[in-house]
Design a protein around this nucleic acid. Structure first.
Length: 680
DNA sequence: GAAGTCTCACTGAA
DNA sequence: CTTCAGTGAGACTT
């Protein structure tokens, strides 16, 4: 969940005041999606440059996928070895990696020559076993002892963008897996379905967390505008370490001269917090609320309230996290980190129930990128799209999609991208059916997780690939969805990518990369975004096009090389043996090549990035007795609204492959792992 | 150790 | 069918 373009060292894409400050680079011709000929130094990249301390997320070295494994080779032992450490690509300053065993004091259990996983095996695990007391969740210590947490002691104390990303992605991967297991178990429902608590518990007891040192002000690696879907996520990255409490503070223990000072608050709108002005927050103190054992009472100047009072006197900066109701999932909340505030005044007020309540007026420290304010603007645009500045078209799909996609240019005069015909699904010109006679499931009432009688679930190796909330659990070589011949209804959980757009998207003019795609809605990790639609062509046709000098910049080609990356949960964290069925890398019977130059959907506007926030996943389902592979896009991490969506265009295996050099373009993604060029 | 907490997912009534 | 209040187990902190 990085801000993508929302890195704060630099104006995020949505910071319009800053955008307007930029002198128009009129020399750039409207080439899209990328202007490759701009001199590199002229590159005020839209999303970069990034803070020097930022290191990229994909930490794990994996063999390049140039040799895809045989399609059916079940007897092959797991080929993927869990990462021993955040390996070569990025060297941490502290070479020694934390061991999985963390003793009670949170210190490393010993000197770490235990870089190799196997070497930690002999270590006694008594201390960690002692700790397991009272834990509902049973880890297999024999196996988990082998797992080396890729977070060093130093990183545990003080984070960075890299570690924050790593922690959050690991957390959510684990949480999705736990959620998947819960779904399948048919728990009597009601209680205990707290995959968030369990995932956080597993990671935190292992020391897989960061920024444990509490601090006032900026938390390294967390940026204004970042979003979270669980309170535990805030704890794990050190933004706010109370799992429920709204006020977090330091000091105030024992000695009188050490005053408690607030470090952060979470505003959930539970009390009557006033949010009239975007930069002002009226926050209620804690306590006095009615509980099971206690009636409503006056709030007291103690604990968090005292810390807020002292912070006001000292005028120290307090981080503010705003809880916002998730429109997509009304019983959940999204937490937006809105940056630093100072407390300007406080007073006591009679609350609804007549009890005294403390009130604090928080004022936002100027000069920070907009975060919550953007949410407010977008609410208005969504109500009335014509109020969106720079709007060219309210719906460029002309109603083809069930949700409108707006076309906006608030950057220059260009009136829109080159002409194309919008279509929401791929066009197969001749038979590209992959699997002969396919068969669906027989579930009449929708496919239920854990039902191994469901043929579609069996095809997905026994797991329902999506959680109840519809997010993809793990990347897989191929995901099988239900098709038209399955009797399960449209609400079946295995029909995610077929059901069309879920978020409100905008095609917008970027500063130097032509047109791009972003969302008015926040997107959570693993959520489906869109599929790639275009004309499906074969390799020969592509070759011919390129030889004829066709300047087609809208090619999707699954046979390119893609940077491998780790996204799935780590089985070792669950005490599972092996790799839970292996590769994350796409593996499809024959390559899928599409051109979206003349026919296509929103996906054709997604730009390339070497550190993308979106990945593609092949999905197969049957239509008219034939099965077709579709290319579905999912979010790598939580993506704040108005952050540009990007994926990795991949590279061709060999220099000199036909058309390669022609189509090699200077990359402007601006991320620190930029490969300097990409292939159109 | 105990108490405190602006949780989260679910339930059932309106 | 949505919205709302009510419920309980829960995990982190001081």
């Amino acid at each position: 969940m990085q801000g993508g373009s929302g890195f704060n060292a630099v104006p995020p894409a949505f910071d319009k005041s800053r955008v307007l400050d930029v002198k128009p680079l009129r020399s750039l011709r409207p080439i899209f999606p990328n202007a490759n000929e701009a001199p590199p130094f002229l590159c005020p990249s839209p999303s970069g440059p990034f803070p020097p301390g930022y290191s990229p997320f994909y930490p794990f070295s994996m063999p390049p996928p140039s040799e895809p494994p045989e399609v059916n080779q079940p007897e092959e032992p797991p080929t993927w070895t869990p990462p021993a450490a955040p390996a070569p690509i990025r060297a941490f300053r502290t070479p020694e990696m934390a061991n999985g065993d963390v003793d009670q004091s949170g210190k490393e259990a010993g000197p770490s020559n235990s870089k190799k996983r196997s070497s930690s095996r002999t270590r006694g695990s008594t201390s960690s076993q002692k700790k397991e007391k009272g834990r509902k969740f049973h880890l297999n210590p024999a196996i988990t002892a082998n797992y080396v947490v890729p977070v060093s002691q130093a990183q545990r104390e003080d984070g960075s963008r890299y570690v924050v990303d790593l922690v959050l992605i690991t957390f959510d991967g684990l949480r999705r897996r736990l959620s998947q297991l819960e779904d399948a178990k048919e728990v009597p429902s009601g209680l205990a379905r707290r995959s968030d608590l369990r995932a956080a518990n597993i990671l935190m007891t292992k020391g897989f967390r960061t920024n444990m040192r509490k601090r006032i002000g900026v938390v390294p690696g967390v940026e204004v505008g970042d979003i979270f879907f669980f309170r535990m996520e805030l704890c794990m990255v050190g933004l706010h370490s109370q799992s429920m409490g709204g006020i977090d503070w330091i000091g105030g223990k024992g000695s009188l001269d050490e005053e408690p000072l607030a470090v952060s608050i979470v505003s959930s709108g539970y009390y009557d917090d006033d949010a009239e002005d975007k930069d002002i927050l009226i926050y209620s103190g804690q306590g006095g609320a009615m509980t099971r054992d206690k009636p409503v009472g006056d709030q007291k100047l103690e604990r968090g309230n005292l810390a807020l009072e002292r912070s006001m006197r000292r005028a120290n900066e307090v981080r503010v996290i705003r809880g916002i109701r998730d429109v997509a999932n009304p019983n959940a909340k999204i937490y937006v980190y809105d940056g630093l505030y100072v407390i300007q005044e406080s007073w006591v007020e009679k609350g609804k129930s007549g009890a005294n309540t403390f009130k604090y007026k928080f004022v936002r420290v100027p000069g920070q990128p907009e975060a919550f304010a953007v949410w407010k603007s977008i609410e208005k645009w969504k109500e009335n799209i014509s109020s969106r500045p720079g709007l060219i078209l309210p719906d460029l799909t002309s109603g083809v999609e069930t949700i409108a996609v707006s076309l906006v240019n608030d950057f220059d005069d260009e009136k829109g991208p080159a002409y194309f015909t919008y279509c929401s699904t791929p066009k197969y010109s001749k038979s590209f059916a992959i699997v002969q006679s396919s068969y669906g499931c027989g579930c009449r009432k929708g496919c239920a997780a854990g039902d191994l009688n469901c043929a579609c679930i069996r095809k997905n190796s026994g797991d329902l690939p999506y959680t109840t909330s519809g997010v993809l659990v793990s990347r897989k070589p191929l995901v099988y969805e239900c098709g038209p011949s399955c009797p399960c209804g449209p609400n079946c959980k295995i029909r995610v990518s077929r059901s069309g757009l879920k978020v409100r998207l905008e095609v917008f003019k970027t500063k130097d990369r032509g047109w791009g795609l972003r969302s008015y809605d926040p997107i959570r990790a693993g959520a489906f975004i869109c599929e790639y639609a275009g004309e499906v062509i074969d390799k020969d046709r592509l070759k011919k096009k390129l030889q004829e000098g066709d300047n087609d910049e809208y090619i999707f080609d699954s046979s390119r090389s893609y940077e491998p990356f780790k996204w799935n949960y780590e089985p070792g964290l669950l005490g599972e043996e092996g790799t839970n069925g292996a590769s994350e890398d796409p593996d499809i019977p024959s390559p899928v090549i599409m051109t979206a130059k003349d026919f296509g959907n929103v996906a054709r506007f997604m730009n390339h990035s070497c550190n993308p926030n979106v990945f593609w996943q092949p999905v197969i389902y049957e239509e008219n007795n034939e099965s077709f592979v579709h290319i579905a896009f999912f979010a790598v991490r939580h993506i704040p609204l108005m952050t540009e969506l990007t994926y990795d265009y991949g590279t061709l295996p060999q220099e000199g492959d036909n058309g390669f050099n022609l189509r090699k373009k200077k990359c402007l993604c601006g991320t620190s792992e930029c490969r300097d060029y990409f292939v159109l």
